[in-house]
Amino acid sequence: MRSTSQNGLRLVWVYPDLLSTYGDQGNVLVVERRARQRGLDVSRLDVRSDQQIPTSGDIYLIGGGEDRPQRLAAERLMRDGGLNRAVANGAIVFSVCAGYQIIGHEFVNDLGQRQQGLGLLDVISTRGEGARCVGDVLADIDEPLGLPPLTGFENHQGVTHVGPTARPFARVRFGNGNGTGDGYEGAYKDTVFGTYMHGPVMARNPHIADHLLKLALDVNGLPPVDDQWYEALRNERIAAATAQPA
């Protein structure tokens, strides 16, 4: 991981003009807030789709989007190449829904065509033929990450298959997740993460934001902060998920 000591922690919100549905921009706000609560020097850059992706960021966050904006975002990111170069240099990526599909090998675009993704994560996404996956989700995050249960909101038609060089991010208790029927949600490898969870997911799961910060800073722990508001929201949404019919 590159050092953050000289210029502080650098957060990059990718294409807010194309990929920012269901409050996903809240993710970068939560990461920024929790860094500042620890007294960290943080700079944030919102990069629109007509701008180049900088390669000097530490944490890149990508949200969800509708089908056509997803295609446009993928085309621009492929041409730009900055995100791939940043990951090659050790940067962290956290992506949601359409962003999750984009960082994989391929997905089905709004024209019904298979479209090449960035190949940052070993996943392939297709379009589901059944009912759309909509509703609250509760899942257990992959044990090696050492994080508490995941809560989020899904709204997608996509089905994402996790390849052998990635690990599922979580195992679903309630909800659909990747839509493959195997009970998995999201995927990750090293510093690249993908999930279908909106919410925004960082507001529901601030420990994920802290995990990204620890990766960026290359530390095992962070000073505690006041989590009263986050825990109230988590408890409310977990209760809503468990109240759903099985």
Rank of each mutant, 00 (worst) to 15 (best):
E231Y: 07
A209E: 02
P164L: 07
R10G: 04
E231H: 12
M202F: 12
T191W: 11
Q37Y: 11
A187Q: 00
G221H: 11
G186Y: 09
F169Q: 00
V134A: 07
Y230L: 11
V162A: 14
D50A: 06
P54W: 06
L147G: 01
A73P: 04
D227G: 09
S95P: 01
P223L: 08
Y60M: 03
V31S: 03
T21K: 12
P164H: 12
V14C: 08
T151Q: 14
Q157Y: 15
Q6W: 11
A73H: 08
G23Q: 10
H207D: 15
Y60A: 00
D50Q: 11
A91Q: 04
L11H: 00
N109T: 01
I92Y: 00
L18Y: 09
G65H: 09
L11V: 03
L121T: 01
H156V: 02
Q51H: 09
N205Y: 00
R127Q: 11
A209T: 01
N7V: 09
G63C: 05
V30A: 14
P16H: 00
P144W: 10
S125H: 06
A166S: 13
V14T: 06
G175S: 07
A74K: 05
T191N: 15
N27Y: 02
E154I: 05
L138W: 07
G119A: 01
N27T: 07
Y100K: 08
T126V: 12
N7L: 13
P245G: 06
Y100A: 10
S125E: 04
A241Q: 05
A98M: 12
L150T: 02
R68L: 14
G186M: 06
A86D: 02
Q113E: 15
T191H: 14
L29N: 14
T21R: 14
D41K: 14
E236M: 10
V96K: 05
L213T: 01
R33W: 14
D46G: 09
G130V: 12
D226C: 13
E236N: 10
L29D: 15
Y230K: 09
V137C: 10
Y196Q: 06
I124H: 14
L145D: 01
K189A: 15
G181P: 05
G175E: 00
Y100T: 02
G8T: 03
Q52A: 15
V28G: 06
L145E: 01
T4I: 13
L19Y: 09
G135N: 03
Q37C: 07
R127S: 08
S49F: 08
V93C: 10
S43F: 10
G65T: 03
Y184W: 13
G112S: 09
C97S: 11
T126M: 07
L40M: 12
S3I: 03
C133D: 08
I124Q: 15
